[in-house]
């Protein structure tokens, strides 16, 4: 997580351009104040015009190395970046990775997929389903204390009561 320490006028602009979301528990500081240099940190100086470059770097830090998963459907085998999956679901004995309008059979157990995607903002919502937080469009509390998730591909998923606490915790920054 980041913290931006520049004057307010720049703050708005830079944080928008860098797509920053800030937090009290930060690991990185961006500032225009030389006095903020901390002894045990590596200091990097960049010009405002390099913001696009720095933006890519921030992407790399936050998103980390992309994890590729291989699966197959009727057209053959495909390797897909993990962030493109909407969710993984167990149907019968088979694990499916669901993409925007197709699904791939993944030859792994769901807990193995979960382990691989540990730092990739995926969250278990039931015994059978692992969801990509980035692909949730809207959350609606249902009357039975469950949560209804509208995914960005218009599908609906349900957060099981047993996983509710964990799910809410995962949304926190």
């Amino acid at each position: 997580m980041f913290k931006l320490k520049v004057n307010e006028e720049k703050h708005k602009r830079i944080s928008e351009r860098l797509g920053l979301i800030e937090h009290t528990k930060y690991d990185y500081i961006l500032t225009d104040d030389k006095n903020e240099v901390e002894e045990d940190k590596i200091n990097i100086v960049f010009n405002e015009a390099d913001i696009p470059k720095v933006n890519n770097l921030l992407d790399l830090i936050v998103k980390g190395e992309e994890v590729l998963l291989t699966g197959s459907n009727q057209y053959g085998q495909k390797t897909v970046e993990s962030r493109n999956f909407y969710y993984f679901i167990v149907e019968g004995e088979t694990v499916y990775g669901v993409l925007h309008n197709t699904k791939l059979i993944i030859r792994m157990k769901l807990y193995e997929v979960e382990e691989i995607l540990l730092n990739k903002d995926y969250i278990r919502i039931s015994k059978y389903c692992l969801v990509n937080i980035g692909k949730i469009d809207y959350i609606k509390p249902a009357l039975n204390s469950k949560l209804d998730l509208l995914m960005k591909n218009k599908e609906h998923l349900e957060v099981n009561r047993a996983y509710l606490k964990e799910f809410k915790a995962a949304l926190k920054l």
Binding site: L58, D59, I133, I139, L171
Partner: peptide, 27 residues
């Protein structure tokens, strides 16, 4: 309020994940 709070949190989370083109939609 819970619904609003959860979705606000979701947007912030997704922004922190640096997902491009996040638009706040209201359902």
């Amino acid at each position: 309020l819970e619904e609003y709070g959860l979705n606000k949190q979701l947007r912030l989370k997704q922004r922190s994940m640096r997902i491009k083109g996040e638009v706040v939609t209201s359902k």
